[in-house]
């Protein structure tokens, strides 16, 4: 039964539509731009009427960009691959390190546990540029500069605190008695962690992982400073479209569309499981 008046429903509809337009319009505009040439993008006044073309996408995928000033090689597809390697690698490492740590922080009070947890969180306080200069010097000495391993290591500054603090909360919400009941039934600490704690905190771990993935994917500054061309992710790679002969808006738009597609798809896919997992209220007394 809907007791709201017609006017109220109309107003709600309009308000919702405004919010959607506000947030979705830039994305829509980017998609439209990606289907146009630079000439149609830059004409004044702008128009939504144009002949769509896939040449931007073709250029990105083939890796050859034709401009008035001549042909230009771009490494967009390898940038995309780098983004995938860096993001997946750093989230995977952060999960392997962060989930057991979160469990330890949630379940055991040991000397200095709060201080360690806070220190990890404080990595998020410092501006990235503050750590980048010393890191660059260290990394050159250690031979870690311009390696996937080194970048994934630095990406832990982004991913690890996020996963640690989100997952810790989920572990704390699980009644310790559930784990104790399993342990007293003849199971080891490790089996209890694997078979009881991990599945119960599953939705939380998935949410934290997804969030960390998005943060890692969108990172710009670490990769800009620490990686050379062949290790750069899309965020840095897109700079290549600012050429001497002008800014390639069409290609930039197409690159943006291609680079948000994986995270968008992942978020949409994971959302089903996240909502399901959270709304089941799996961790009730």
């Amino acid at each position: 039964m809907d007791h709201r008046s017609l006017l109220e429903r109309w107003l709600r509809g309009i308000a919702l539509a405004l919010v959607v337009v506000f947030f979705m319009f830039p994305i829509l505009w980017i998609v439209l731009m990606s289907l146009q040439t630079n000439e149609t993008i830059l004409r004044s006044p702008p128009s939504v009427v144009f002949t769509p073309t896939l040449q931007n996408y073709a250029a990105l995928i083939s890796g050859r960009l034709e401009t008035e000033a001549g042909a230009l090689d771009i490494a967009f597809m390898s940038n995309l691959m780098n983004s995938v390697i860096l993001s997946v690698g750093s989230v995977a490492l952060a999960l392997v390190l962060g989930v057991p740590a979160a469990y330890a922080f949630a379940r055991h009070r040991f000397r200095g546990s709060e201080d360690i947890a806070f220190t990890l969180l404080s990595f998020r306080f410092a501006p990235p540029l503050l750590v980048l200069l010393p890191l660059t010097l260290y990394f050159q000495d250690l031979g870690l500069a311009d390696t996937y391993f080194g970048l994934i290591w630095v990406y832990q500054l982004i991913c690890l605190p996020l996963i640690l603090w989100i997952v810790r909360g989920y572990f704390e919400d699980i009644s310790p008695d559930i784990e104790l009941a399993y342990r007293i039934a003849g199971h080891s600490w490790w089996a209890t962690f694997r078979r009881i704690a991990l599945p119960l905190a599953g939705p939380g771990i998935a949410a934290a992982g997804l969030l960390a993935f998005i943060f890692a994917w969108n990172n710009f500054i670490f990769a800009l400073v620490l990686a050379s061309a062949d290790k750069q992710p899309v965020t840095v790679g897109a700079l290549a479209f600012v050429t001497a002969s002008g800014i390639q808006y069409g290609q930039i738009a197409a690159a943006v569309v291609l680079s948000i597609a994986p995270t968008l798809a992942l978020a949409l896919w994971a959302q089903r499981y996240l909502v399901e997992g959270l709304s089941l209220g799996a961790v009730k007394g």
Binding site: S175, D177, I178, L180, A181, Y182, R183, I184, A185, G186, H187, S188, W189, I196, P199, L200, L280, A282, V283, K284, G285
Partner: peptide, 30 residues
Amino acid sequence: LAPARRNVAMAFEGYALYPPLTVRENIAFA
């Protein structure tokens, strides 16, 4: 000894049932 090696069974005040399992599975678990 670790709880697992004491050979005792316990019913908890807060029940401590495993949420993803049915009541039947919970009881049969042990």
